[in-house]
Nucleic acid binder design. Structure first.
Length: 417
RNA sequence: CGGAGUGUAGUUCAGAUGGUAGAACACACGGUUCGGGACCGUGAGGUCGUGGGUUCAAGUCCCGCCACUCCGACCA
């Protein structure tokens, strides 16, 4: 991608918002605020979201998930069956109505909808298990949006639902997803600070499990056991729970964290409410066992910025960075330097290295470096009159740069990715 | 949902007591610069959130509405 064509260009780091993620993502041109708590994904932001999605998708497919997309318009009757149409029970509803007056809801979750749909396709134990997932926009009428894209009214979520014939197959799958989730957070770069956290489980199981990433901007307070690599949400912390999990209060550390994912077992309650049953081998009618698994994709992007930035901008982990390489061409009014920069750019493109090439002739070095730091691609290459036949190589998270030959740059980049 | 605040140029903001609409940054053009967001000159850019009211006269005063920001509560 040529910087001269990039839409939109980052802005000079000016306005500060209520959080680092909002400040850098908005000034950097990754997202655009449409209204309070509602953000459009601009080209740079979309690239990151797509990378996070790809990482999540790979793991979901690996555990047997099949991708689909449900709708945002939902029937009222669906939610009345589980008593969640009521604004007293669910306070985040956006509701509207059709021309003929029929009331509809805008999807804040898809659990009811997918489960209801399953009635059309699941009648026998032979049809199970089924695991489906989607990346879908959730619409939630939050009383107050805050913390940039960490708590919005419209956001992208990866949600998966599992339908099993027995508690055993469900539990086995649940554990597989739990492991898959840890890999996902590892692979997006949050592994070191993301903890499997015991949280309230609702009616069916004692616990649900959250994936909490340590950050001061997080809304949750959790108690961390670093050695065991687990945590307990404050909402369920009791003496009984601690002894059950084999931990002492003395080993727990109180920290703030942001919930990036959660998984929970719903048992058969919802299936019974909605009427999702199957016939087992003996012809006996049984309710399907349901599990629900979510990851806040756009929230993950926000948490990444919270974790990985300095005062100049973002420092994306390689796996999710918009481009692997930020190539800065200086002194481009000199034809021979311009030729070298162009040929390196073409060589990188040819080798399918993701590269953003700052090809602007009229912009000075300082501004180009500032833009590179704000956007936060992991490797910065510079070609200028100072670099001679070589190329300056610097990582975003390091101070020192080094000069390398073009061939070495190319082979290092192709090797890495 | 309680409390507080703010809406004026693309952006951030200034415009006491009513009297012809301002700056900085950004932008366009010309010039000097050229490795960490340079500088000089010129220029373009506005239904002052919106509807009503008071007044000879409203960005400014009064009332309604809308939006945004922050604090709190909420976040199964």
């Amino acid at each position: 991608m040529r910087y001269s064509k990039l839409f939109p260009k980052p802005q000079k780091l000016g306005k500060e918002y209520d959080s680092a993620n909002a400040t850098f993502l908005i000034n950097g041109g990754f997202i655009h605020q449409e209204m309070a708590g509602v953000y459009a994904l601009l080209p740079l932001g979309l690239r990151i979201v797509e990378k996070i999605k790809a990482i999540a998708r790979k793991e979901m497919v690996a555990v047997g998930g099949q991708e689909l997309i449900m709708t945002s318009l939902q029937r009222k009757e669906l939610w009345e069956k589980t008593d969640r149409w009521n604004d007293e029970k669910v306070d985040v509803w956006f509701k509207s109505h059709l021309k003929n007056g029929t009331e509809i809801g805008l999807a804040w979750s898809h659990e009811e909808q997918i489960t209801e749909m399953m009635k059309n396709y699941v009648t026998s134990y032979r049809d199970l298990p089924v695991r489906v997932f989607q990346f879908q926009t959730k619409l939630r009428n939050e009383l107050r949006a805050k913390s940039g894209i960490l708590r919005g009214r419209e956001f992208l979520m990866k949600d998966m639902y599992s339908y099993s014939t027995s508690e055993e197959t469900h539990t086995k799958f649940y554990d597989e997803v739990s492991q898959a989730y840890l890999r996902i957070f590892e692979n997006v770069g949050l592994g070191a600070d993301t903890y499997l956290t015991f949280a309230s489980g609702g009616a069916f199981t004692q616990f649900s499990h959250e994936f909490q990433t340590l950050t001061d901007i997080g809304e949750d307070v959790i108690y961390l056991h670093r050695q065991k690599k687990i945590a307990i949400n404050k909402e369920v912390l009791t003496q009984e729970v601690m002894s059950q999990l084999g931990v002492n209060q003395a080993d727990l550390e109180e920290v703030r964290a942001a919930e990036v994912g959660n998984i929970f077992s719903c048992g058969s309650t919802k299936s019974e409410q909605l009427g999702l049953f199957f016939n087992d081998e003996s012809g006996q009618k049984k309710p399907v066992i349901l599990g629900s698994y979510g990851i806040g994709i756009t929230r993950v992007m926000g948490v990444l910025v919270e974790k990985f930035h300095d005062d100049r901008g973002i420092m994306w982990p390689e796996q999710v960075a918009p481009y692997q390489v930020h190539l800065v061409g200086l002194d481009l009014h000199d034809d021979s330097i311009k030729k070298r920069a162009e040929s390196l750019y073409e060589a990188l493109v040819k080798r399918e290295v993701e590269v953003l090439f700052d090809d602007r002739e009229e912009v000075r070095a300082g501004e180009k470096f500032a833009d590179a730091d704000l956007i936060g691609n992991p490797i910065r290459l510079v070609i200028s009159k100072r670099t001679g036949e070589q190329v300056e190589w610097k990582r975003r998270n390091e101070k020192e740069s080094q000069l390398k030959m073009v061939d070495a740059v190319l082979s290092d980049l192709v090797k890495n990715y």
